[in-house]
Design a protein around this nucleic acid. Structure first.
Length: 490
RNA sequence: GCCGGGAUAGCUCAGUGGUAGAGCACCUGAUUGUGGAUCAGGUGGCACGGGUUCAAUUCCCGUUCCCGGUACCA
């Protein structure tokens, strides 16, 4: 029995090590630039909220996914499970002053769900969302703008185009269309409508036959569990499946075709009007048809969406959706008597990273890491090297001082620099001190020039390959010249 | 949540009712202030708790975690 504490992460949680964190930083930098370009402003909120803020009016299952804890005052608090609910609270709490509507904000931060984690598929109990939302407008222009922002944000990632389509695309729908269809066949019970939407939401994961079975009486899954069905009858199921299978060459064509499947009603007309207006705005915004398709089967089974819904996919990423969102006009009414309409979308950063890794995408990150190691030479006070490093930094050149063991062993230090891929090593030993010089070693050139040497002795004798000595005051210029040269070669 | 499978070195994996191995990684060395490759040597492990047994890493039960499926997902 060991007295040591075993180092481990909590189930469903993970550490993000430097290689991935660099990538995340780069992704966020690009995404944020696009968000800001559209006029979204930054906002942050605490990861914890009082439980009543988070707990919805309906759904014990939803509440079960909230991490709960006690604060020192013995109040039950919960970790936020998305950034949307805190945004609704912000709107309720800070309008009309200091926040004026309409209000666009972006928000990046961790959210928590006490789910069954599936790390390989990018499902964790803590994950990072990068949200944008607009509060205080019913205009469909806002719904369309969210789509355009997402398409632009992913364009900024400069992903390689696939063989059969764009690397990223959104599916877009309006839940009022399905609602209108269901109302047309006499289904108006919200519970049943929600169930239908949940089943339709699986349409890309299960076969048409399984879909039909779940809409009827239910089916047995592979493990033998029974999945209860909606209980619709044959004719309605067929009509519904026809409805959600409608396709077309353009978004406008899909919407026009859907009109033919809807029984005339006020609801149908409103739904079609919204969908038509959305396609017009997308067109005006220059959103390519292949980047945002209209898909009547998209449901996003979640209860609080009231109109437009979106889902974004990384083609070939193997992680499901990386973007989700839609219009939710009822959320603020939990906090305020008046309704504040909202629409927004969220990028799942962890899934995006996983997807990019599956696609072998290289965003050329690592620019945030220093390229220069200052060695501590034998017989020379380490403070000399500290001073050299400080000089470089003062000139705007990132530099790391060697602080590992065996200071003074040049080979060990160069080996360290080599294993981390540094570009240059700076040496000030006794020889340099006497001549008031510094030595700058180009690690890449040295490596290339000695690559074919198989004999150990010869290799060692060629050790000084790629290095130059110069006057001390010329050090920054010498290092900079080497680094610039390296960037050009990348 | 439910069904099934798994857990052996830092990593990927072999293997056994009598306390275990490989490859890679890591460390040391191959004379002085020079990286890589090579060569020689070395460190390091049977998830946790209980049971059966003369003896358990191996068989059984439980726990935790991981994987696959399924359900759910604001």
């Amino acid at each position: 029995m060991s007295r040591l504490v075993r180092p481990q992460t909590l189930r469903g949680f993970r550490d993000v090590l430097p290689a991935e964190m660099s990538l995340q930083n780069e992704l966020v930098r690009r995404i944020r630039a696009v968000y800001e370009h559209y006029g979204y402003v930054p906002l942050d909120t605490p990861v914890m909220e009082l439980l009543p803020t988070l707990v919805g009016s309906g759904g014990d299952e939803a509440d079960a996914q909230i991490f709960q804890l006690l604060n020192p005052e013995q109040q039950t608090v919960g970790l936020r499970f998305d950034l949307t609910v805190p945004f609704a609270r912000i709107i309720a709490q800070y309008t009309p002053d200091p926040i004026k509507l309409p209000f666009r904000r972006y928000h990046l931060g961790p959210v928590f769900r006490a789910d069954d984690p599936q790390p390989e598929q990018g499902r964790f109990r803590q994950f990072t969302q990068v949200d944008i939302d607009v509060a205080g407008t019913e205009s469909i222009a806002a719904d369309a703008e969210i789509v355009a922002v997402m398409v632009d944000a992913f364009a900024a990632l400069e992903l390689p185009r696939g063989d059969d389509g764009p690397p990223f695309y959104l599916r877009v729908n309006n839940r009022k269309l399905v609602d209108a269809f269901l109302a047309g066949v006499g289904i108006v019970d919200p519970e049943r409508c929600a169930h239908v939407l949940r089943v339709l939401d699986k349409s890309d994961r299960i076969t048409d036959r399984q879909l039909a079975e779940e809409l009827r009486e239910g089916r047995y899954d592979r493990s033998g569990d029974f999945i209860p069905g909606v209980g619709l009858t044959g004719g309605v199921v067929d009509a519904l499946l026809d409805f959600v299978a409608v396709t077309g060459a353009t978004r406008a064509e899909v919407v026009a075709a859907l009109a033919g499947h809807l029984a005339p009603s006020e609801l149908s007309e409103a739904a079609l009007a919204e969908a038509t207006e959305l396609t017009a705005h997308l067109e005006a915004l220059g959103v390519a048809e292949e980047s945002a398709r209209f898909d009547p089967s998209l449901a996003r089974g979640l209860a609080y969406y009231t109109g437009t819904v979106y889902e974004g996919t990384l083609a070939g990423g193997g992680v499901g959706s990386v973007v989700g969102g839609g219009r939710y006009d009822g959320l603020v009414s939990r906090f305020l008597d008046e309704a504040v309409p909202m629409v927004g979308a969220s990028i799942g950063l962890d899934r995006l990273v996983t997807g990019l890794r599956n696609l072998d995408v290289d965003l050329g990150t690592g620019a945030d890491r220093v390229q220069v190691l200052v060695l501590v030479m034998p017989g020379v006070d380490a403070a000399v090297s500290s001073g050299i490093a400080a000089k470089l930094r003062a000139e705007g050149i990132g530099a790391e001082l060697y602080v590992g063991k065996d200071q003074g062993k040049v080979g060990r230090q160069l080996s360290y620099a080599n294993s981390l891929g540094y570009r240059a090593a700076v040496m000030v030993g006794r020889k340099e001190l006497e001549a008031d010089q510094v030595t700058v070693k180009d690690l890449r050139a040295g490596s290339e020039q000695r690559a074919d040497i198989a004999d150990r002795e010869t290799y060692r004798k060629a050790g000084q390959t790629g290095q130059i000595s110069c006057a001390r005051e010329q050090l920054p210029a010498a290092v900079r010249g080497l680094l610039d040269d390296g960037d050009a070669g990348r």
